[in-house]
Design a binder for these strands. Structure first.
Length: 362
DNA sequence: AATACGTGGCC
DNA sequence: TGGCCAAGTAT
């Protein structure tokens, strides 16, 4: 026990030393030098970045984080924002329940908590969209709480450091226990980011750079040459193919027919083209009577758990048209960047079609 | 516990 | 080209 504690302390110290020399400069990060001067990160920005980073790469998040913080510098600003505006700014980042919960959480913090985030992991955990990882990360980084932060990086680093050969997800509890044994009481925020940085830059999934790893001398998987094979994972279930039909109706004044998707489920709360259900043999479901024509080609898109192939039908309709579903948005009201990626692909396919009405010019 | 939930980069 | 994977959460 005592030996483990001493070894864990030394491992944490090595990681902190490495982090002091190699910490990446990220927009949401207060680096080790500034932290040593007593500069504390803004909990709102820590929270925003951590939610954006859930299952999402740093490269993808960077631009979104810059735009969100420019538009909404405080949690009060975000809480007061229009839902559609926030969903539109999140478009393309994926996992849209995050954006819906982001607004819910901002409104609880701004409305019920005086604009201040809770300063413990336990209390943070009760907020919408904040789970075990995010609660621990905010508590450690923003509030100096010695919480154990466990994300995919930490699981990978622990699996290798301790040569855990049990496949994920069964290994989760053992990996968490190893991570907890290493977590220091000092500089918990820097430590959490150090392990994640190590996982993101050196202890990478495919070909870990063991040659320059500060933990190389203590890594059990490296010693036996199996680092790259860890962590093992249970076999994944294959993705089925689903099909669907979407309809792009353009009014003569240029307005396009779009609908707000239901608040739950796939792409919940996002703007999209009306269409059929997605399944084996989708039924024709035009949102209004029109002379629909099939566009050549199709839109292919892969979600987490299925492949989608969408047929696209288009029509030009009179200005007096009314639709059974959705609403016509004028060119001034419609920003293609408000669409989730699969719907953006539909727009791109439609826009690139030559048309007898000269649509390509507008 | 298992499944639903996005997207883009990498090899 | 297609599968893998990423700073997970909700149910």
């Amino acid at each position: 026990m005592r030996d483990d504690a001493v070894t864990g302390h030394e491992t944490a110290h090595i990681l902190l030393g490495w982090y002091d020399r190699h910490a990446r400069d990220l927009p949401w990060r207060v680096g080790p030098a500034d932290r040593a001067r007593g500069i504390r990160p803004d909990p709102y920005r820590v929270w925003l970045s951590e939610v954006m980073l859930q299952q999402t790469t740093v490269a993808a998040v960077r631009g979104y984080y810059e735009r969100f913080t420019a538009l909404w510098p405080t949690v009060g600003d975000l809480a007061a924002a229009d839902d559609a505006r926030v969903m539109g700014e999140w478009a393309g980042l994926g996992y849209y329940a995050r954006a819906r919960n982001l607004l819910k959480c901002a409104r609880v913090v701004a409305g019920d908590l005086g604009g201040r985030f809770p300063d413990t992991a336990e209390a943070l955990r009760d907020l919408p969209g904040i789970g075990p990882y995010t609660a621990a990360a905010i508590a450690a980084i923003a509030f100096d709480r010695p919480e154990t932060v466990v994300d995919g990086n930490v699981e990978r680093v622990m699996a290798r450091l301790f040569a855990v050969e049990t496949p994920l997800p069964a290994a989760k509890s053992a990996l968490r226990a190893h991570a907890a044994g290493l977590t220091p009481k000092v500089r918990p925020g820097d430590y959490a980011q150090a392990v994640m940085d190590l996982g993101a830059t050196i202890c990478t999934p495919k070909s870990p750079a063991c040659g320059i790893c500060p933990l190389r001398p203590r890594c059990a998987a490296r010693a036996t040459g199996i680092a790259a094979a860890l962590p093992r994972r249970s076999p994944k279930t294959p993705k089925p193919v689903r099909r669907g039909v979407v309809y792009v109706a353009r009014r003569m004044d240029g307005a396009l027919l779009l609908e707000r998707r239901p608040d739950s489920g796939l792409l919940g709360g996002m703007l999209g083209w009306p269409g059929s259900d997605w399944g084996d043999n989708p039924a024709d479901a035009p949102p209004l009577e029109a002379d629909w024509r099939d566009l050549p080609g199709e839109v292919r898109h892969t979600f987490t758990h299925f492949h989608l192939r969408l047929a696209v039908r288009a029509a030009e309709v009179p200005e007096t048209s009314t639709a059974r579903r959705g609403a016509f948005l004028s060119a001034a009201e419609f920003r293609p960047s408000d669409l989730p990626t699969v719907m953006r692909k539909v727009f791109d396919l439609w826009r690139d079609q030559p048309s007898p009405w000269g649509r390509a010019e507008t």
